[in-house]
Amino acid sequence: MKLAIVFAALVALAIAAPSSDKDTQITKLVNDVAADGFNYNLETSDGTSQTAQGELKQVNSENSAVVVKGSFSYIASDGQQYTVTYVADEKGFQPTGKHLPVV
């Protein structure tokens, strides 16, 4: 169930991503979902890309969590490409990117 929620969130993110080109086409889509994990890769003709790999992790004897590692990049209205790499696990969403502040 958790895996389905994560996958649905990734698809929603891909659909909701703003694009200045209404004719943007999907050029690559890989979507492999298994009981213990998933692999997702999306590329579009406007330079947007997303990748994510998730696996079920046993946190302790009673709890498990889906650990997701991935990245997304896009070309902003200023013409620059921005990339965010992240890990999402039992500690929360942990993004990194050259344009993001470091805590």
Rank of each mutant, 00 (worst) to 15 (best):
T51N: 13
E90K: 14
K91H: 06
A76P: 01
A88W: 11
A88C: 13
S49T: 08
S73T: 13
A88V: 09
T83Y: 04
N60Q: 00
L56P: 01
Q80S: 05
T51A: 10
Q58P: 03
Q94L: 12
S61A: 15
Q80D: 05
I75F: 06
S77M: 13
T85Q: 13
K69I: 12
A52H: 02
K91Q: 14
S61H: 12
Q50G: 05
A76N: 13
K57D: 00
S73G: 15
K57T: 05
V66S: 04
Q58W: 03
S71I: 07
Q81T: 15
Q58I: 07
E62C: 11
D89S: 11
S49H: 11
Q80F: 12
V59S: 01
Q80K: 15
G79R: 10
V59H: 00
D89F: 09
S61C: 07
Y82C: 08
V84K: 09
K69A: 06
Q50K: 13
S61R: 13
N60D: 02
E55G: 10
D78E: 04
D89Y: 05
G70K: 10
G79I: 09
A52N: 02
Y86G: 01
D89Q: 12
N60V: 00
G70F: 03
Q81G: 01
Y74Q: 09
A88L: 11
G92D: 09
E90V: 08
G70D: 02
V59A: 04
S61P: 04
Q53R: 13
S77L: 12
Y82H: 15
F72G: 10
A88G: 06
E62G: 08
E90R: 09
V66A: 03
F93P: 07
L56Y: 03
L56Q: 04
I75L: 08
A76C: 02
S71R: 14
S77R: 14
N60I: 02
T51M: 10
E90H: 11
T83S: 08
V59T: 08
K91M: 04
Q53Y: 07
Q81S: 14
T83L: 06
